[in-house]
Design a protein around this nucleic acid. Structure first.
Length: 420
RNA sequence: CUACUCCUAUUACUCCCCA
């Protein structure tokens, strides 16, 4: 059984969950007693493939069959829920595990802190950090890195640095992840010199930059329009024996797309293929969006065909991108049709899908359609966010329906959202 | 050396910038 658990894990890593499932099925049929490992392995894999429903189902099935999940199994599903921004559900599960006498571990707390950061409740994450210490549980580098990373993303590098000092004071050594987060924060603020200084300090501490470090730098330069600098960095990383990966190339493509240099962007795709790096849906989405924003429809279409021929299929982001352009072109009928066809192709609309279409309606003054889309949204499990409400409130105001807008604003706070 | 937590790329509103 031990060996077969390893095999299940291998299949999961290779993207063959089904094989993993059949192994576990056989083991169950043969009457072997299984522990939490194969279940947790498969649940984790399903989450990573964004098969949320199946993951939750498996977890429930596991409990129905009388298996008591251990901490790691709970952690797995907690993490999946947090990543999906289903924090309320995660908390419910946390309470369940405590009730069942399953003692939360440091990983559990780290997972929840990460969840809090993801939904923007950074101050609650800080509170939990203090609480962990009071419960006699020592936070580790991951705990600190999680919060430092969030602060850096919010461009609060000063606060992040303070927290870094605190961790050192507590005897916890910063890791390469800590440094990478800080570098990203500094780059986003345009503090290139400080980022370079930090890089030099890392070298002095025998902390070697990883592909993450380089990708962060390459992406930052691309976003700031300095592709030349990004290309130099790529050369530099190759010299240091780190091969660019799909993320590196995607950053470069996006850099060119942002400057409307579509031919150069397309050229990067060809180069990456030539270098033996396989593009994924993400890479194609970048180019697809670039072509559409430049109204190069024929090339966009060709790109999609190319993508299909590589055995890749569009995802919800591909659809959203196309939906956005249809709205921009004023083809609302086509947009609505695309919206309806999504579900039949197995792609559930997400909040960005709804927001995009909503924006299209509002721009053309179709407020009734906008409001009925809002109704439709409320019948789904998709939760409206602040951007969605901004679009709707803005649309109502511009149409002179201020009472409706303020009604919506008061509805906002009942949902626990803070208007901006 | 069987599973769980931290860092990198794509899509929506506003703002900003540029024109």
């Amino acid at each position: 059984v031990y060996t077969l658990n390893i095999l299940i894990h291998c299949f999961c890593c290779l993207g063959c969950v089904d094989f993993g499932f059949s192994i576990m099925g056989k083991l169950l049929k043969l009457g072997f007693h299984l522990d939490s490992v194969p279940f947790a392995t498969l649940i984790d894999c399903l989450f990573k493939e964004h098969k949320f429903v199946q993951a939750t189902e498996l977890f429930n099935k596991m409990k129905e069959k009388g298996y008591q999940p251990n901490v790691a199994a709970y952690n797995t599903i907690l993490n999946g829920l947090c990543k999906k921004h289903e924090f309320a559900q995660a908390l419910q599960l946390f309470n369940e595990m405590v009730e069942k006498g399953c003692e939360p571990s440091l990983v559990t707390y780290n997972t929840i802190i990460n969840g809090l950061c993801k939904v923007g409740k950074t101050s609650d994450a800080f509170k939990l950090l203090k609480e962990i210490e009071q419960r006699g549980c020592e936070p580790d580098a991951v705990t600190y890195n999680t919060i430092i990373g969030k602060l850096c993303k919010d461009e609060l590098v000063v606060e992040a640095t303070e927290l870094c000092i605190e961790m050192v004071y507590k005897g916890i050594s910063p890791t390469i992840v800590t440094s990478n987060s800080l570098i990203q924060g500094l780059c986003n603020l345009g503090e290139w010199n400080k980022a370079s200084t930090l890089l030099e300090e890392m070298e002095g501490c025998n902390m070697a930059p990883t592909i993450f470090t380089f990708n962060i730098l390459v992406n930052a330069h691309c976003k700031h329009g300095n592709i030349l600098k990004a290309l130099h960095l790529v050369e530099h990383m190759i010299q240091r024996g780190i091969e660019p990966d799909v993320v590196t190339y995607s950053s470069l493509m996006d850099g060119y797309c942002l400057r409307d240099q579509m031919n150069e962007a397309r050229n990067v795709l060809d180069i990456m293929v030539r270098n033996g790096c396989k593009p994924n849906v993400h890479s194609y989405n970048i180019l697809f969006s670039g072509y559409l924003k430049n109204r190069r429809m024929t090339e966009a279409k060709k790109l999609l065909d190319d993508m299909y021929s590589k055995g890749l299929s569009p995802d919800v982001i591909t659809y959203n991108t196309f939906l956005y352009i249809l709205c921009q072109l004023g083809s609302l009928t086509a947009a609505e049709e695309l919206f309806k066809s999504m579900s039949s192709h197995g792609h559930s609309p997400d909040i960005i899908t709804y927001s995009t279409l909503l924006h299209g309606f509002c721009q053309q003054g179709f407020l009734d359609e906008a409001l009925s889309l809002f109704d439709a949204l409320q019948k789904t499990s998709v939760k409206p966010n602040l951007v969605f409400y901004n679009i709707l409130v803005d649309g109502l105001c511009k149409a002179g329906r201020r009472e409706d807008a303020s009604k919506l604003l008061s509805h906002l706070s009942t949902e626990g959202l803070q208007p901006s």
